[in-house]
Simulated scan of single mutants.
Amino acid sequence: MSGWAAARSIIIRYIQLGRLNQNGLIERFNRTYRTEVLDAYLFTNLEQVQTITNQWLVDYNEYRPHEALGNIPPVQFMPRLTRVPNLYRILSI
């Protein structure tokens, strides 16, 4: 994998020793993907994996409520992250 990443100018960043929480969110996602897709189907080819994964991602991001986001899907939560208060109005008081 290191050779493949280097050939594509991808830097591999490892978790710091004693800092397992740095990887907590991706580990949660990986576990969910593994149990709901990889362990749930018998695949016959790579295209089938890609098709089922794409369908699962749409459901995961657009319809499925996430407890950590207040039981709403990520697609509904994202606009909240982009709302920035009008700082000009706040600073000109």
Rank of each mutant, 00 (worst) to 15 (best):
W4M: 05
P73I: 06
I11L: 15
N54D: 15
L42V: 10
L87C: 09
R80D: 07
Y14T: 05
I90C: 04
H66M: 09
F29T: 06
T44L: 05
E27W: 02
Y60D: 06
R28C: 10
S9I: 03
T35F: 04
N71E: 08
R31E: 08
A7N: 14
N21H: 12
A40P: 01
A7I: 02
R80W: 07
L17F: 06
R83L: 13
V49Y: 03
N30W: 14
I26H: 07
P74Q: 11
S92Y: 04
Q50G: 01
S9P: 00
T32C: 13
E27N: 07
A7T: 05
H66L: 10
E67H: 02
Q76V: 00
G3N: 15
P85H: 08
Y14G: 00
A68N: 07
Q16A: 15
I10S: 08
Q50H: 09
H66E: 02
R8C: 02
R13G: 07
Q16E: 10
M78W: 13
A68K: 10
N45M: 06
L20G: 10
L20S: 13
R80H: 13
D59R: 08
R28V: 05
L38F: 04
R80P: 00
D59L: 06
G18H: 09
E67Q: 15
I12L: 15
N71S: 13
M1L: 14
G3S: 06
Y60R: 06
F43K: 06
A6E: 15
D39P: 00
T44Y: 06
F77V: 01
T44R: 09
R13I: 06
F77N: 00
P79W: 12
G18C: 08
G70K: 09
V84I: 13
F77I: 03
Y41D: 03
R8P: 00
R8L: 10
R83A: 09
Q55F: 05
S92L: 08
Y33T: 01
Y33D: 05
V37S: 07
G70C: 03
L87Y: 12
S9M: 06
I93Y: 08
R28D: 02
Y41E: 08
T82G: 09
H66V: 04
N23H: 09
P74T: 06
W4S: 04
Y14L: 12
E47R: 11
A40T: 07
T82D: 12
R34F: 00
T35S: 15
R83K: 14
Q76R: 14
N30G: 04
P73Q: 08
T44E: 15
Q48N: 05
S2C: 05
Q76H: 11
L69S: 03
R80T: 11
Q22Y: 01
Y33K: 03
S9K: 13
T53P: 01
Y41R: 08
Y14H: 14
L25T: 04
Y33E: 03
E67R: 12
T32I: 10
L81C: 13
G70I: 04
P79F: 12
L57Q: 12
P73M: 09
E36D: 12
F43R: 05
I10N: 10
A6M: 07
E27V: 01
